[in-house]
């Protein structure tokens, strides 16, 4: 379990402009630099924010997915996804 690392990625995305630019251009490679489990990596990089939320990532940090357009998450699909109304395959 590395909920800490997922929180940290989302924290850095909002607070570190250079990190933000990197994750927005080479997203998977940047996430690979952190010690996520396979399950966490899959959920995180497929934009399955409900799964990431259920793993314990803080919702305030989670909103950085749509705020910064990570892994296909947008303002439009964020809430349908976190409410389980839109599944991520």
């Amino acid at each position: 379990m590395s909920v800490y690392s997922m929180n940290k990625i989302l924290y850095l995305t909002e607070n570190d402009a250079a990190f933000r630019q990197r994750i927005q251009t080479e997203a998977e490679a940047v996430v690979k630099e952190f010690p996520l489990t396979d399950e966490e990596f899959r959920a995180f990089t497929s934009g399955d924010i409900l799964a990431v939320f259920n793993m314990g990532v803080h919702p305030f940090l989670l909103s950085n997915f749509s705020r910064h357009g990570l892994f296909g998450v947008t303002d439009k699909n964020y809430f349908p996804r976190i409410r389980g109304e839109e599944k991520v395959s």
Partner: peptide, 9 residues
């Protein structure tokens, strides 16, 4: 207030 969670809004 809820931010980023299922009860947003």
């Amino acid at each position: 207030l809820e931010i980023g969670g299922p009860k947003f809004g």
